[in-house]
Nucleic acid binder design. Structure first.
Lengths: 197, 197
DNA sequence: TTGTTAATCTAGCGATGCTAGAATATGTAG
DNA sequence: CTACATATTCTAGCATCGCTAGATTAACAA
């Protein structure tokens, strides 16, 4: 039954073309430009074909978000490995997170702002989401005694700074200084992990 | 010319009815339910009348957001005055901020997530926005040497925690502990203001 | 009472997400 | 090769959205 396999392969390929197209349009023109009609036109199929792959537009956004989490996890992992100093690793990851948010605002929006139907902190949470969380936890763990709680808080701080900055509510020029403030606060915190720097 | 005054008064009243209606629908059914048709129906006028008050749907969201900022500023100011301890004031404001986000998610969304056209950090930034920022700055100033930078960072942390929590990405049950972590980090930070607690 | 201006409404445009039902390929059996 | 059955894809359309042009009505002035 090589025919069935070929069919599945072609279908999977078409699906990833849809996701890639959605991602591309979102990055170039923003998410409002990502319409089902536009996607159908770009992949050269009719609209119902798009719906044979994804139940709704939100599901497509979710698929792009999932790819984004895989990318972000890899980015953070790489940032953490640029230095042996726990403090510098923490700062590198924080900077990497915000750089990602500003370099790929549309993907970041899909991951953190738009409705996607993705489920977090559940038993069926997709691997890329866990991996991203893990990458953050890896660098903050040395500085705290409750890594999960600290990671949640660290993540919140980074996400909030990204959002306020993205919306023009805080001064873009002081991005690095805000990161430094966060990193300092973590390092000199109550549970003052390893000797700083 | 009492007639003109009455006209203006009636127009202003109708405008605030639009905003109140939008706020009410958003709180009860979410922002997607706030359509121009629905607003027009509820205030018993036709759609163009709504557009004679606001240039776009986004502008209506912005008006609700502005009211929200006034509310939030008052909430934070009140929270800060419940204690003389700078540390407890900081914690009370942080808790108040997050409580506001979860008690009025739709208004919070208008203030921080949805497109509104509101301008921050500019010369024409509306007073309520400045006041809210000031309320945060008032409680964090004792613990830092660059109040503006610290306020931006503090604000980011709070907003990020609110968003991740609202989207179900961090554990709701640990909200208070995350706040405590943030407060501790600020108090024991590099510029360790007044003797803690 | 008539004419002018301002306020309001009706009706519609161009989109959107999504879907039912027709049409067309595709693979199988006689 | 033909006829049927199945799966795939398309055409066409629904209901709804934000927004607006042009007709209609109300309010005031002469």
């Amino acid at each position: 039954m090589g025919i069935t396999e070929r069919r599945l392969r072609e279908k999977a390929e078409r699906e990833s073309r849809i996701v890639a197209t959605a991602r591309h349009i979102a990055e170039e023109e923003g998410w409002p430009a990502v319409t089902i009609r536009r996607l159908a036109q770009d992949i050269e199929y009719s609209q119902p074909v798009v719906y044979s792959h994804f139940a709704s537009r939100d599901a497509i956004v979710g698929a792009v978000a999932l790819e984004g989490f895989a990318d972000l996890a890899e980015t953070l992992r790489a940032a953490a490995h640029t230095t042996a100093s726990p403090r510098k690793a923490l700062e590198a990851v924080a900077t990497g997170f915000l750089d990602f948010a500003f370099a790929r605002p549309a993907i970041y929006e899909a991951m953190f702002v738009l409705p996607t139907g993705l489920r977090f902190a559940k038993s069926d949470t997709p691997p890329p989401l866990r991996t991203t969380f893990g990458a953050l936890m890896a660098v903050i763990a040395p500085f705290c005694d409750d890594p999960e709680l600290a990671t949640e808080t660290f993540w919140g701080a980074l996400h909030g700074l990204a959002e306020l900055d993205r919306h023009g509510r805080i001064r873009p020029a002081f991005r690095a200084q805000r990161i430094a403030l966060v990193v300092d606060a973590i390092c000199h915190g109550p549970d003052n992990g390893p000797a700083g720097a």
